[in-house]
Simulated assay, not measured.
Amino acid sequence: MTYQFYGLDHVQLAAPEGCEAAARHFFETILGWKEIPKPEQLQKRGGIWFQCGIHQVHIGVQQDFVPAAKAHPAFQVQNLDELRSRLLLQNVNIIDDEARSDEGIKRFYVNDPFGNRLEFLEWQ
């Protein structure tokens, strides 16, 4: 084989037009991700980008936006309980899921400000 996959470069989540302030508050202020500049030629499309560990999360504007209620990214976290506490202090609704606890995985879901499902997990 002459090509090789390294993994994910970024995940893109869709959001409605004018989403930037709400995205900045949730992803940067609440989650603690760093906003990163979008390339100049993409700035006119709207949206906002963030750094999450070694990956990027791009929030892109979608016409006729409908949130992704089932399809979702899963973010591996160190100190998941600390993240849970931070989210609860910010009045973010947490949806617990113990379906993989027998594998040593602790996890929960939240919805971003636009209704997209996000999973956070920690291997025990």
Rank of each mutant, 00 (worst) to 15 (best):
T2Q: 11
F5P: 07
L8G: 10
L8R: 06
V11M: 10
Q12S: 05
L13W: 01
E17C: 10
E17A: 15
G18F: 03
A21F: 04
E28A: 15
E28D: 11
T29W: 01
I30A: 02
I30N: 05
W33V: 02
K34R: 10
E35Q: 14
I36G: 04
P37S: 13
K38Q: 13
P39Q: 11
E40K: 13
E40D: 14
E40H: 10
Q41M: 09
L42K: 13
L42P: 10
L42H: 14
Q43Y: 07
K44E: 12
W49G: 02
W49K: 03
Q51E: 13
Q51C: 08
C52I: 12
G53P: 04
G53I: 03
V57Q: 02
H58M: 04
I59W: 01
V61S: 04
V61G: 03
Q63V: 10
D64F: 01
D64P: 02
D64C: 03
P67L: 01
A69H: 11
A74F: 00
A74T: 11
V77W: 01
Q78A: 11
Q78V: 08
R84T: 14
R86G: 01
R86H: 05
L89F: 06
N91P: 00
I94S: 04
E98L: 13
A99V: 13
R100Y: 15
D102Y: 09
D102F: 09
E103I: 06
F108C: 10
Y109C: 04
D112G: 09
N116W: 04
L118I: 15
